[in-house]
Nucleic acid binder design. Structure first.
Lengths: 241, 241
DNA sequence: GTTGTTACGTTAGCGAACTAACATCATCTC
DNA sequence: GAGATGATGTTAGTTCGCTAACGTAACAAC
């Protein structure tokens, strides 16, 4: 549960030394019966019309799942990091359904593809695997609902600000620098696709947050988010003057 | 799987006479050990700071789960209809976490509340119950990602239009009238909270869709959505003139 | 070391959506 | 039926964010 360790500390959980996210380690013989595939950067892994009849585990690299609207705007639904499963929504649709989305390698990547029917038979064999699958779904649903919450904010400062808080708590890594600061490796373009705004407006809005000292970044420096300060700023009435 | 019957016809699914959404019928002795609670319209069921240490099943009525931002805008994350479980995100957070959201009765409602620890022991007892739980999560994750997709559209016509398509395929009931038309019982105010726009602008935008014959409604008549026509309109380049 | 590439930075002008306020229509309550 | 309530309809004026275009900084390839 690496990406959620900040929000869901293992120690506080119910009774769950067994509760963990689904990984390739849950598959028998380390994923035998799966096909290992390699993808170049920007290469598509599935397309909207492809059949949803398999589930993937990302071995290395990064994958984004998203769609694009009629005007050609690409939007990111979810980012997958190494070790995580993706394409898992085939579970409730069945192999006759289409993916509807596009998955694309955001960096050179390797993934194992397992047929849905094979995967389902794995699920039958162990309650632990099934429980891990539930846990993964639960975390992703919580994540998706937070994204809905973020996107529901009108106003660029709020939407982008809450997005940064969300990213910092899920994908960020604590920084050796000032306390509260978290490094978030993300480009303005990716932020635009996550916050559903234009890239130039992301730059303008980020500049506004930077001038207030809520984030820190530069042409060479990666992005640092001061989560407590940003949260306080967004929660308060920052509409004055 | 009532609300998804249109999208996920049972016949086409893998091997799943057993695959169904989690309902109170999956709980032993029809939910003994659960507390039945009654709520008046608009009464809160949980608040953001409440502990997430129980799961609910809605017996009758309707519940909305949502949040409100710093400006006081209420936004709806999800709508729960009779028979469905809610508050299930406690599963991955554990009982020490807060709900973060607000659940509110949208109509006079009855619900069964089951302690998380009791519920977890129910999950241990049957693989079918666990599988149903996975299925419910999977459907809700798919639903949440479609909501993200909807909210990522800029422009009121697109956002509201795709929201109506989404609602029609999930909550709508086929109409005896023209084919393709689906009745969707929803107010402009609720649409505003779902699409993250102001209520007046919803009315203006709905009027625009009505003039084009894509939806049909009136002061007394409920809302009918012409799904194929609306989908075609939104998919095409309707930017001309 | 010039060129291509990628990401961040900036601006002008325009169209879109919000706020705030009020009008209309139907239903419910007494 | 006289209000009260709640939902839809409408508008004026202002703010906001988009498009489109271009500028700048860092880096890689050769």
């Amino acid at each position: 549960m690496k990406q959620y360790s900040a929000k869901f500390p293992a120690g506080e959980h119910l009774a769950c030394q067994t509760l963990s996210e689904l990984t390739l380690a849950h598959m028998p013989r380390d994923g035998a019966h799966g096909r290992v595939r390699r993808y170049r950067k920007t290469a598509p892994i599935w397309r909207p019309d492809d059949r949803a009849d398999s589930i993937f585990f990302l071995l290395s690299g990064q994958v984004t799942v998203g769609t694009s609207d009629a005007q050609g705007h690409e939007i990111i639904l979810r980012v997958i990091d190494a070790g995580e499963p993706f394409g898992e929504l085939c579970f409730c649709g069945g192999p006759a359904e289409a993916r509807q989305t596009t998955a694309r390698a955001g960096a050179p990547s390797e993934a194992v593809e397992i047929d849905l029917s094979v995967f389902m038979s794995y699920l039958q064999e162990s309650r632990d695997v099934l429980a891990a699958f539930v846990f993964t779904f639960c975390i992703r649903l919580a994540d998706a609902e937070r994204r809905i919450e973020v996107l529901a904010h009108r106003g660029a400062v709020d939407r982008l600000g809450w997005l940064l808080v969300h990213l910092a708590t899920t994908r960020g890594q604590a920084n050796a620098g000032r306390t509260g600061e978290v490094a978030v490796p993300v480009s303005h373009d990716e932020l635009a696709q996550l916050a559903a705004m234009s890239r130039p407006h992301v730059t303008v809005t980020m500049g506004r947050l930077r001038r207030r000292g809520l984030v820190r970044y530069g042409r060479k420096q990666p992005l640092f988010v001061d989560v407590p300060a940003l949260t306080a700023y967004l929660s308060g009435d920052h509409r004055e003057h």
